[in-house]
Every structure is written in structure tokens, then in C-alpha cells.
Nucleic acid binder design. Structure first.
Length: 355
DNA sequence: AGTATTTGACCACC
DNA sequence: GGTGGTCAAATACT
């Protein structure tokens, strides 16, 4: 009984991976044969969505598989792995419930998509605010890390309570080079801003003034904080040319040609998939490994500045790639209507957030 | 008053 | 037991 079930899972896992491979090939063909974005853009986007969905499903299956035999865990993870535990819904006390949920939360976070961006501030005046990725974050902690000169900041999505968005990020300044800031993202945004950004950004449409203002406010906030943390000699005017390097993907231009940031390719961290690390399906990893932007058009154009870059485009420029794959997955979830994805709508139970 | 940040304490994992 | 991640009360800010 259980064996046939696991066989079936195995087969569908293979099917998903095969499908993903074929879709990737299709996309590859599209990219080779058609450089006209107006023709191929939508198709490509659709293909990418499908590919991401496929791999996500495969990963989900793998996650489920790893829990096989651990019925307690499965039961405990019910709210996050509903698809894995449809048969395990025994009644339990509230205390047990909370306990399970707490553990589930931990496991959940462990398996969450995770990827790192390194933001290099080319000038010595680097400002973390420029890390603004278009999402609003709320700081919930800061901690000194062993062996690290600078404390690590912990942020979570502002809409965590309101919309159950579990995305978090960690911000840490590099030891060797304080102008490099490592941002580790965890989990994808499931909040409305993800959708909104996704609609806005892929084609680099303009961001609403209000929202833009909001982002700038955030930026300023971070700027101030950053100033506090920085050495005095680093406190000058905000002029930042940023290089944002993601670690997990080799060439995102290949995959998202419409994000052609003129940048040297780094590709040193070559763990493209890190054995199918969830990171590879994450928004940021879908970008190029490294892209530059000039946050403010001070004087002449920045080295890597987008021709149309204006102040109002900054966050757009940063956030666009980040959000590209966020929502498609979300939408796909709805589209597929399977509730299959471990990482997308895990915790909609109010009590989960009542921390 | 409502919201965001700070910071010490707590907890799970290794 | 040490460490990283999170919580939550206190505080600051708008």
C-alpha cells in the first residue's frame, strides 16, 4: 500500500523533472531563435513559469518523501504540508497544536527557498538602503555573528501578519570588504506587493509616484541606519553604484534576457542548482549573477546605469528581477489549484502569527 | 495612537 | 554548551 504510493510519487517526480527539462529546452530554443521580445516575451515568461512550477513540485515531492515514515512530523506539519498529510488529521490538544506548529515553523523555515545576493557598493559610501528590493521589510532582530565584525540584521516582510507573507531576509556586511553587503533571502513573498511588483516590473513599467515615495522613505530610513553603523569616513553623500551578485545562478541573462544589466559576469559561485537547491527557483536567482546599478544619477551616468535610469526607476531596477518569478509561482499555484507548493501558502492560520 | 526599531531573552539545532 | 534565529517588551518615531 505504502510502497505503491511511494512508487507513484517517484514516477510523478521523474515526470515533473522530465517536463521541466523539456520546458527548459523549449525556452532555450525560443531564446536562440527569437530575439524579438515583443513576440517571445510572453511565451518565454509562460515557459519560465512552467519550469519553475515543475521544479517546485518536484522539490515538494522530495520534501514529502523525506518525511515518509515520520507520521508524527507529517501530522505536525499538516498546515504546511497539507498535501503530504491528507490522511493524518487526528485531533489534538491546543498545546500540542502549538507545539507542532512551532516545530513545523522551524522545519518550514529550514526548507524554505534561500538565496544570497551580494551587494557591492562601488563607492565607499555604500548604503544599505539601496538594497531596497521593492518589498517592504520590517526589522525584527539584530545579532552579532561569531567571527563577523558586523552584526547581522534580520528582516521579515511587513505584511507577514496581514497577509501571511513569510519572506525574510538577513543583511550582513562583509568582513573583508565593508562595501559588500550580503543579503540572504528566505522564502518568497506571498503578499500582494509581490503580485503588484511582478505586474509592474518585468517590462520595467513605471512605478507609481506614491509607491515610489514609499520606497524612497524606506531607503532613507535604511540610509540613516546604515550611517549609524558605518565608520565615520564612510559617511558621505549617498552615491552608490551597486553590484548585486546572486550566488546561485550562473547566467541569468540567459534565462531572463529582458534583464540585460550590462555587467561583467562573475559566475564564480557556480553552484547553479546546488543539487536542486530551492534557491534556484527563487526570484533573485533567476537574475544574472551580477548586475550593477547606479542608484542616483550623480553627475554623469553611472558605469552600469540603465539609459532610462532616473530616481524613480531605482527601486524598479532593483526590484524588477527580484519579483519576476515571485508571482508567477503564486499565480501558478492558483492556476494549478493543487495547493501543492510547500513554500507558497503554508501558514494562513491566524494563530500561527499570533506570536 | 499606531507603527517601527532595539535589544535581551528564549529556543532549537549541531 | 555554543550558535544562529526568533520573540516580545521596551522604546523611539511619525
Amino acid at each position: 500500500m505504502e510502497e505503491t504510493s511511494s512508487k507513484r510519487k517517484h514516477v510523478s517526480l521523474i515526470n515533473e523533472l522530465i517536463q521541466g527539462k523539456e520546458l527548459a529546452k523549449q525556452l532555450s530554443d525560443h531564446l536562440v531563435t527569437s530575439y524579438d521580445p515583443s513576440i517571445s516575451h510572453e511565451t518565454n515568461e509562460l515557459l519560465i513559469e512552467k519550469i519553475l512550477s515543475t521544479y517546485e513540485k518536484a522539490l515538494t515531492m522530495l520534501n514529502c518523501g523525506s518525511n515518509v515514515g515520520d507520521t508524527k512530523t507529517i501530522s505536525g506539519n499538516m498546515m504546511m504540508d497539507s498535501h503530504c498529510s491528507s490522511t493524518n488529521e487526528s485531533p489534538r490538544s491546543e498545546v500540542m497544536d502549538l507545539e507542532f506548529k512551532h516545530k513545523a515553523l522551524f522545519k518550514k523555515r529550514k526548507t524554505m527557498p534561500r538565496w544570497t545576493e551580494q551587494v557591492k557598493i562601488c563607492s565607499e559610501t555604500g548604503i544599505e538602503g539601496s538594497l531596497d528590493d521593492g518589498y517592504s521589510w520590517r526589522k525584527y532582530g539584530q545579532k552579532g555573528i561569531l567571527g563577523a565584525k558586523f552584526p547581522r540584521g534580520y528582516y521579515r516582510c511587513t505584511h507577514r501578519n496581514a497577509q501571511g507573507c513569510l519572506a525574510t531576509k538577513q543583511v550582513q556586511r562583509s568582513d573583508e570588504d565593508p562595501t559588500i553587503i550580503e543579503v540572504t533571502y528566505r522564502g518568497r513573498h506571498t503578499c500582494m506587493q509581490a503580485k503588484h511588483l511582478n505586474k509592474e516590473s518585468p517590462s520595467k513599467t513605471k512605478m507609481g509616484l506614491e509607491e515610489n515615495q514609499h520606497h524612497n522613505d524606506q531607503k532613507n530610513q535604511l540610509v540613516q541606519q546604515e550611517k549609524m553603523e558605518q565608520t565615520p569616513e564612510a559617511i558621505f553623500k549617498f552615491k552608490a553604484e551597486l553590484e548585486v551578485k546572486t550566488e546561485d545562478l550562473e547566467t541569468k541573462e540567459d534565462i531572463f534576457p529582458w534583464f540585460c544589466f550590462p555587467s561583467p559576469s562573475i559566475g564564480s559561485e557556480n553552484d547553479f542548482m546546488e543539487s536542486f537547491s530551492p534557491a534556484f527557483i527563487s526570484p533573485a536567482t533567476s537574475e544574472s549573477n551580477l548586475f550593477c546599478l547606479s542608484a542616483y544619477p550623480l553627475g554623469s551616468t553611472g558605469l552600469c546605469q540603465n539609459p532610462q535610469t532616473s530616481e524613480s526607476d531605482i527601486t524598479d531596477t532593483v526590484s524588477a528581477p527580484t519579483s519576476v518569478t515571485n508571482s508567477p509561482l503564486l499565480d501558478l499555484d492558483i492556476l494549478l489549484n493543487k495547493g501543492d507548493f510547500d513554500t507558497d501558502f503554508p501558514f494562513n492560520t491566524p494563530e500561527y502569527f499570533s506570536s
